[in-house]
Design a protein around this nucleic acid. Structure first.
Lengths: 268, 268
DNA sequence: TTGGACTCTCCCATCGTGGGAGGGTCCACC
DNA sequence: GGTGGACCCTCCCACGATGGGAGAGTCCAA
């Protein structure tokens, strides 16, 4: 029992919170005043509540959702630390997303929105040996590597020669469970365990070349799809990428990737 | 006139946007369909609109507000680049804020919320030579440096000896326009142009020592204020900081700062 | 006792998106 | 020429955290 009770305004100034916030925290049960006058509805806070209130303010400052803060206040130290670590990870993820976004914006601001030369052309038929996998959009990088490390050794062991560059096939839409494939062009081989052979049909395509990090591929696809749709054409899965200059040969900024979208021939 | 018009669902799949989003963009004038059937209210989009729609999707992906996207679409290339650069800066700011937050979270997760030993004690009276400035909370760092570079040369020229550490005085609340002061303890000097002498009264205080980056000071203040308020005590401006180990002497993680909050004596 | 500072409850707005209800429209197939 | 099913419409509500403001009631010191 130290000191008397404080009105909401005084308590708010104390804890660097707004009166509105305190009322909101009361409603949601995050921090209820120790006493509410039955007649007037006035809220009264005890000085001891300042610790919780300040903690709330601190955690809000770090952008934790109120729901998480509520858990953290109620939890034991160990599980609290667990919660905070989870939030840190969430934040770390946001940071890396923001950094990628920032680089894209940078590029957009420099090069402008066009920046990509889209060519309408014809592709020959190609026969690929492929390895497939299913993944979410965020995991494309790892999954791609995993496919490569399945594909190339098998080709090597089977003595199948292939012609660079490496290819990849993607669906038209990035879905939660999308099937991707990594392939190498070859005319050899037929029945090889662990491998599959596909023939990409020849025909009209729209294509462009992207130079730079894979994180910025959406910029190129944007231009590419825009060009396709503007002409009233229908793209056809799968979209093809050819890795003219890959990560093994050059730094991030000098990667070269050819993006190819096959076009539906019929007007159906 | 390439290709016929598309219904909203088809157009949405094309541009990787949801139907809801397209309707919303129509309502807000960001992207109106080329034709709306008067009878049924059906929206019809032209393939040429895919470029704008894809651009919207792209910029939304980078978290630009719709209002900004609308400006960007309407603007000429130069002012568009300007806009994008401004957004990049906004993003950069958010990233650095998030990084600071993440470090704080890290620390909280390790040390737990208490982590600070708060001492209730008595401070002697101190006489400081100070330089003052007014700034916003975000500019404290620079303003502090500026004050130091005003204070120390004047002391040197006046031949006034002072006793480390350096001090700083802050108001109780971080406001938009807050007056801060940097001071050096000394018994010499009286009327020096460009300097001011203040006497910090002695008396009861709450104090703690913060080790680490200044960005994490809020953690320490949180504990300190919590301790003060829990005891039903009233803090009294100005808050004092003493820079036991400053940035010139050690790396970020080893900075040592003593935080002192004077306590009101009277029970008024 | 009165005035001014404070507090109360409600409602609305932000921003971008999604869900759902309830009802109309389009088109291909039988 | 129906009919079923996919599609589309509008309108309302929800999220999360906060702020603004109206209109009314309360507290306390002069």
């Amino acid at each position: 029992m130290q000191g008397e009770l404080l009105t909401i305004g005084r308590f708010a100034r104390l804890c660097r919170l707004s009166v509105k916030q305190l009322r909101h925290y009361d409603e949601t049960g995050l921090l209820a005043p120790v006493h509410v006058d039955a007649g007037s509805g006035y809220r009264y806070y005890a000085p001891e509540q300042a610790r919780d209130a300040l903690t709330i303010a601190l955690l809000r400052e770090m952008d934790l959702p109120l729901a998480v803060i509520a858990q953290a206040l109620a939890a034991e130290p160990e599980s609290r630390a667990e919660l905070l670590r989870a939030e840190r990870d969430r934040l770390a993820e946001r940071i890396s997303r923001d950094q990628a976004r920032m680089k894209m914006l940078e590029r957009l601001a420099e090069g402008g929105l066009p920046g990509y030369e889209v060519t309408m052309g014809k592709e020959p038929e190609r026969r690929l040996a492929v390895a497939r996998a299913v993944c979410a959009p965020a995991e494309i990088g790892e999954t791609f590597e995993e496919c490569v490390s399945r594909l190339l050794p098998v080709l090597g062991r089977a003595g199948i020669a292939w012609e660079p560059p490496l290819w990849a096939l993607y669906p038209l839409d990035l879905e939660e469970r999308m099937e991707i494939a990594v392939g190498a062009q070859t005319s050899q081989g037929e029945e090889v365990p662990g491998l599959e052979f596909v023939v990409l049909p020849g025909g009209p395509v729209a294509e462009t070349v992207h130079i730079g990090s894979y994180a910025q591929l959406p910029l190129a696809y944007n231009a590419l799809f825009a060009a396709v749709h503007e002409r009233g054409l229908r793209p056809q899965a799968p979209v093809r990428e050819a890795y003219l200059v890959g990560p093994a040969e050059a730094p991030q900024e000098e990667l070269m990737t050819r993006l190819i979208i096959p076009i539906q021939e019929s007007k159906a």
